[in-house]
Amino acid sequence: MPALNPAYINVQDFNFWYGPKHAIKSVSMAIPECQVTAFIGPSGCGKSTLLRNLNRMNDLVDGVRHSGDITLNGTSLYDPSVEVISLRKRVGMVFQKSNPFAKSIYENVIFSLRVAGQNKKSELDEVVERSLAGAALWDEVKDRLHESAYGLSGGQMQRLCIARAIANRPQILLMDEPCAALDPIATLKIEDLIQDLKKEFTIVIVTHNMHQATRCADRTAFFYLGELVEYDTTGVIFNTPAQDRTEAYIRGLFS
């Protein structure tokens, strides 16, 4: 096994603007391979924005611009030769609100394979089982794969979205507050899942839930007003933060 890259995703002096709003201010950070990195911080601190830049989802928004660079395993995401579609195939994403398509569970899972032109039934079946099992959903839905995804509960839908995101085996999985709309039991299941998934994927997770960050993340970054305040191992951030603002935040003194 090759040595894991400690700066698998490398953010270098990255600035980002939504129109006149300076959303990310000179952020530099290195995200290691096959670890879970959590972004925490109060609402509007830029953590989600940074996450959405990692697969260039912000391209879809009007009136945005950036400076600085983000590299993925050494290659700039913003290089003109980068095909954004293939970038998104490498960097999967799970959204805050579960968003399955108006299709069957089966079709939802294999969506990324379908758009890549894969139609071989046996392979697709295998992918569906592997992905759903990976998302800890297989046992619950294996008998109703061809029913509408909208028949699932909220937690199941979110796990289906995770299964969908990992079906095409991306290298990185971005999770934007994946448990924000879930009950505690579903949340626990997904957290367990994250622990499993990090063996295979590099995971970046945005969360509002301190306990979640302590439970799943190897490293944690604290953002405040578009700045990266502190970035270290989760233990350091939650036990002995170097910055007062970090400490104040994790103690719940402001949000």
């Binding site: 989802m57 579609i85 998104r88 959204f95 399955p100 095409n168």
Partner: peptide, 14 residues
């Protein structure tokens, strides 16, 4: 819903 187009785009669909 934009969430669906975003999901599709995030999965590498053109």
């Amino acid at each position: 819903p934009a969430s669906l187009t975003a999901a599709s785009a995030a999965l590498g669909a053109s």
